[in-house]
Design a protein around this nucleic acid. Sequence first.
DNA 1: CTTCTTTGCATGGTATATCATGGGATTTTT
DNA 2: AAAAATCCCATGATATACCATGCAAAGAAG
Lengths: 147, 147
Amino acid sequence: MDTIINKVDTKGRVSLPSDYRAIVKELSTEIVCYRSLNSPCIEGCAEELLEKIASDMETSLDFFSQTQDELTNLIFGDARRFSFDSTGRILLTEKLLKHAQITDTAVFVGKGRKFQIWNPENWEKEEARIRAEIFKNRPSLGNKGGM
Amino acid sequence: MDTIINKVDTKGRVSLPSDYRAIVKELSTEIVCYRSLNSPCIEGCAEELLEKIASDMETSLDFFSQTQDELTNLIFGDARRFSFDSTGRILLTEKLLKHAQITDTAVFVGKGRKFQIWNPENWEKEEARIRAEIFKNRPSLGNKGGM
DNA sequence: CTTCTTTGCATGGTATATCATGGGATTTTT
DNA sequence: AAAAATCCCATGATATACCATGCAAAGAAG
């Protein structure tokens, strides 16, 4: 999956790139979106993945931990299903758009089994940051990468 | 899933968000509500889940704890059925509203198989607190969660 | 290799259905 | 009889489904 730029109209509607749609569509016509915990962006995935993530997090914590209970609040409280219509669009909420500082343009970034939606400028910076990070760690990669 | 803000009218009536209703409606037109033991909020779920939640709670406590019985008694003693009408509203009691400090606005917070109802200001603080907490403990979470 | 055609996708606009909410009216309880 | 709870209808707002246009990439024909 590569990076795709789509417009967000005045109502907050945005087309889910067809490649992204195709992957989800095998399962359903719905995706789940939530505010990223790490970055000013929206994250999206299939519902099954969210539940897996939730249970993974649970098992990675002390079973008796109160944090577990709080996590379910945070995850399920923030996440929402978004069904896309026949033309493949979803209607994003104010909360999500605000968190990602998105107004009229959105950048879709594939992340394996999930994806992120960014404000274009923010993504540009983030990408540069990631590249710099990789370059810094490059010596430790040796020539295994072959690049 | 999701967080939804609804009004509580002068009679104490409040609309159960339609998404929540849809899930319950497959089984019945009733939900069960009780005062949360951990937070100043109301908890709600489908009736079938109440017993399971109670037993979950038991296993999350010291098996030989004396308080175990007391806690389940507390929940079962407090819990009550609330049927929603054709427009999807329930009438909350003074006891519940007071416990959650709710007057004219209620915030529904999804929690997977159950949900919570909060006073808006309280939830705002609670959410901020949880996010800070999670962020602080983040390194220990590793990337198992992937969020 | 160039040009024309076709197909799929993003995007704008509009209509329809759904939902939250206010206000009675009717019933039940004490 | 008074108060509280339940039911029902009306309305405005909003989300969702649907239709239509335009663009751009891919493929076929000359």
